[in-house]
Amino acid sequence: MKRLAIYGMMAEFDTTSDLVAAARRTHEAGYRKIDAYSPFPVEGLADEMGFHKNAVPLVVLVGGVLGAISGYLLQYWISAVTYPINVGGRPYNSWPAFIVVTFETTILFAGLAAVLGMLALNGLPMPYHPVFNVPRFAFATRDRFFLIIFSSDPKYETAGTRVFLESLKPRSISEVPS
């Protein structure tokens, strides 16, 4: 795909309420390829942008199930198949003794799945991203809130989008070079 020279148009807001309201209006106006940036998680912001499918819980579930199965099978295979040791006539597959390690591997796999899955779904690590080309964006990790409409959005056109963003009464508007 040919890379567009302009990545999008970004508006800056002062408060969480302004950002959430702006995200809602942008979504209502028919823009779909949008994103919002805030220095901390803002409740309901992703919903207003139309982001509802969060795959993290599924990834964690899969990780946990894999951890439980592989943890138990590891112990079963070691203790009952490849290295059986008879301790006082107890069964080789002495499952109550295997629960602890099975539990630990379940937590370990699920936890790793949560962290790595979250990073992978977010596309991190990402060394370069066009939004950082906007100098004011450095405040996105301090006290400012940003909304961007990507140029890949079918409704995007330089003049019209700027007029629309101005109607949201932002603090500033900048074009984001890619």
Binding site: D35, A36, S38, P41, M49, F51, L124, P125, T141
Partner: peptide, 12 residues
């Protein structure tokens, strides 16, 4: 790791 505080990222 390139964290930029995107709303989608925050949700996940």
């Amino acid at each position: 790791m390139g964290w930029r505080g995107s709303a989608r990222h925050w949700a996940r």
